[in-house]
């Protein structure tokens, strides 16, 4: 058989795809979190950053988007395939089954993954397609150029408490998914031994927590600013943008 086909059909080939796509996604998530954290700086930073990404040449922007989409699709398709095969490998369940070693995060992988899939769809509709709420009219003056005010969009998005609660809960599940996944991918690629195992397990948990705390800090900060009067973010800027948007609509 063609060795390439043999690889894709084999259990280990599928596991490599899982690990490699998971590696890309886990890296993306950390970068995304770091980018978002700029919301704690004055509005200019995150708006300039967003504008820079949006104005990348079309091939590059769409190249990155399609590559990420490919990773998500591969990750999910292979996960479904592997999970079905695993169920088929034990058609008769035990009457009594104990768990000696497996962690909750490892056992929950298919479930946390599935919820992440729904979240990814919601998230894209929310902030990329912007079809859940209309954020089309949020102008920001970046050195004389009118750009989209991402700062205000994020603030408005998370000021709905149900959206914030949903994001926070899903980030908890992402933390769980990464706690097993980031350590597991080293084992899958064969880059782990008994000495490194414990260290990698801890590093993966730390990775999960960093991503969790980084992401969650944003909806928490919005809720505190908006509802508890603890001004962690620039509410005046948000109000100014909304006023500007309104006057622009009236003038039209």
């Amino acid at each position: 058989m063609n060795p390439f086909l043999q690889l894709l059909r084999s259990s280990l080939g599928k596991k490599y795809l899982m690990a490699l796509s998971g590696f890309v996604l886990a890296g993306f998530v950390l970068g995304h979190m770091a980018g978002n954290a700029q919301i704690f700086l004055p509005p200019e930073y995150i708006n300039a950053y967003g504008h820079k990404l949006q104005s990348l040449p079309g091939v590059v922007l769409w190249g990155i988007r399609l590559f990420l989409l490919l990773c998500v699709v591969v990750h999910i398709c292979v996960a479904v395939l592997l999970t079905i095969e695993n169920r088929l490998a034990r058609p008769d369940r035990y009457e009594k089954e104990a768990t000696v070693e497996a962690t909750i995060s490892s056992r929950a992988m298919p479930y946390t993954g599935l919820i992440l899939l729904f979240f990814i769809i919601f998230h894209l509709l929310h902030y990329t397609v912007r079809s859940i709420y209309d954020y089309s009219n949020l102008p920001y003056n970046l050195h004389g150029e009118t750009v989209h005010d991402i700062y205000t969009m994020m603030y408005l998005g998370f000021s709905h408490w149900w959206v914030s609660i949903f994001y926070i809960a899903v980030m908890g599940l992402l933390c769980l998914h990464l706690t097993h996944g980031v350590s597991s991918m080293f084992q899958t690629m064969g880059w782990r031994n008994e000495k490194w195992r414990a260290i990698l397990d801890k590093a993966a948990a730390a990775y999960g927590w960093v991503v969790f705390l980084g992401f969650v800090s944003i909806p928490v900060a919005v809720l505190l600013t908006e509802h508890a009067g603890i001004a962690l973010l620039d509410k005046e800027h948000v109000e100014a943008t909304l006023a500007l948007a309104k006057s622009l609509t009236l003038n039209q």
Binding site: R9, S11, K15, E101, Q187
Partner: peptide, 18 residues
């Protein structure tokens, strides 16, 4: 050996450690 293992219908490791 891996090919034969797959053919026999065993499942795929998800690194549970059981």
């Amino acid at each position: 050996m891996v090919w034969q293992m797959d053919r026999a219908g065993f499942g795929n490791c998800t690194n549970y450690g059981e």
